[in-house]
Design a protein around this nucleic acid. Sequence first.
DNA 1: CCTCTTTCGGAAAACGTATTCCATCACCTA
DNA 2: TAGGTGATGGAATACGTTTTCCGAAAGAGG
Lengths: 336, 336
Amino acid sequence: MTEQAPTLLDVAREAGVSAATASRALNGSTRTVSAEKLNLVLQAAARLGYAPNLSAQATARGSTKTVALIVHDIADPYFSSIAAGIVDGAEAAGLTVTMAVTGRSPDRELEIVSILRGHRPHAIVLAGSRIGDDQEALADELSAYRAAGGRVAVVSQPGLPYGTVTIDNRRGADELADALVAHGYRRFAILRGPDVLHTSRDRAEGFTAGLARAGLEPVETVEAEFTEDGGHAAMSGLLDRGRGEVELVFAVNDVMAIGAMRALRDAGLVPGRDLAIAGFDDIPAAVDVDPALTTVAVPMRKMGRRAIELALAETEEPELVRLPTSVVLRGSTPRR
Amino acid sequence: MTEQAPTLLDVAREAGVSAATASRALNGSTRTVSAEKLNLVLQAAARLGYAPNLSAQATARGSTKTVALIVHDIADPYFSSIAAGIVDGAEAAGLTVTMAVTGRSPDRELEIVSILRGHRPHAIVLAGSRIGDDQEALADELSAYRAAGGRVAVVSQPGLPYGTVTIDNRRGADELADALVAHGYRRFAILRGPDVLHTSRDRAEGFTAGLARAGLEPVETVEAEFTEDGGHAAMSGLLDRGRGEVELVFAVNDVMAIGAMRALRDAGLVPGRDLAIAGFDDIPAAVDVDPALTTVAVPMRKMGRRAIELALAETEEPELVRLPTSVVLRGSTPRR
DNA sequence: CCTCTTTCGGAAAACGTATTCCATCACCTA
DNA sequence: TAGGTGATGGAATACGTTTTCCGAAAGAGG
């Protein structure tokens, strides 16, 4: 009933040539094949609807045309933007992208790298800041992959011995603090994510450092999930406790900030007027909310593209690319 | 320098057994292997950091543990939510997801299916409503894949002879129109996408039908790109021309609606108060904008999950699953 | 006209794994 | 104790490609 997919041999037989010739005709081999046979093979292939078995090709060649992408959560706009950049870059290089999602679990991440290694992809791209703990097991897994000729690139997770594209989280947050102080704010709360995430920690510290230069320090710090719901919950909690004299809440990423804005409105308050909000990332939705969100713009899509270029470049030294961020002030932090 | 990755044979040698035994020990074979040898092999594998070559496995077995996903744009929250559901389902079934992005180009989609077919994935899931034209070439490609034992599932694109999960776009839009008329609105404009997209057409027609039952018809219809920028541009155009007596703009999806809201604000108007807006999809951002967006809720993530279940189920008849939608009225369409 | 090179086709080996056959051995039953 | 049965190990083959190697034919230079 379900006949088999046509193989190279079927094509060769149909064209009346050997398997070797068929193979040479159907892909860019070094060897050339006469125009006559070439046509024969091409036509036979078309007639049978032949599609080369890429797995077999991979085992024969010992290499694949595949890039593996590991993200925490593909529905998160931050990661899906990076993913889009990576897909761009991969397609430009004629590669297919395979994707795996960790759900922010380090165990799962380790497991995934191990499985992916089995695919023998051309490159592995890790996106998202990982937990610090079992750094080691993951590093082993990756260096095994690397030793066998694999390429690795990392997004936004400096400190690993691989090509890395990142931003300066501390500096971005520091500059944001600067700008907000210049706008007249004095009393800040920080909404941070789990402390194990480098990104969250660096941004919180950078912001604090910026305040310190102005002789200020945060009135309060709340820890929450790195998600929109996390931001909502944290802000609700803060409001319940009475927000005291806090004038502005800095959330370490935009989705949390947007969650916080929603909590604000749920409580009958107006973001920007009653309490100012700032985020980090400049996801697309940042301009969709009202008031538009003050944030630090991160070139996510470009980071993805750059990461894959890094992975593909056959460089010896692990290169560290820091892409610039920029503070963008919007309606959620009016001048006081 | 770059030594090769350890192979099954290396493990077998290290453990002092034959390749066959090693193979049987390292994956769920029908055959059983003595506890003693099993341990030997497992330890050897761990010692060498062995990861089975999945390509070789695939050619030997003639099947892969892979699901291919085709979407239009992974950065679009609609698709990334569906993708998240698919990844969920795939991982539950122990499958890896490979992803390809069409950028909404039918040519590219055709090309992608052809490449993907070469990967011999366990299943192919198509997400997003495709253009009607070269339906045929695509259908050929897919049925070739199917004939060779592949599974296909389709999201939101009924009419193909494959397992399909979708929603009733006409009905959803119709019910939305109903609800809005009940809210006191009488003068509507429709912001539709390119007419070749089924989704866009069905939603526009459904909305029009709903109005017709109340003896109304849309004052105006504007066509634009299916993206946020498209919505922004269309709304700007509408405002420039003078929006006349339009009371409410229905955009055929949320990202367009959100773009339209932004255009409104850019023109100094207040969405909801000066002009009501409604969308379709209920993407996460719909509750983040202010006022929150009235829309038709589509269970995107669940659609993804369901799609992969459909693909994996070995059913004869192509099943058509219609997931229910629900109108959700929010602040962007206050009662008049 | 003879060698030397180049071009091109096919047979066969290789890639890393799964699986089909045997062969061996222990154990059980009568 | 003979024959049957079930468990287990290994040699060999298969999977669908690519690639090496060899030989034949064709053209170039003397």
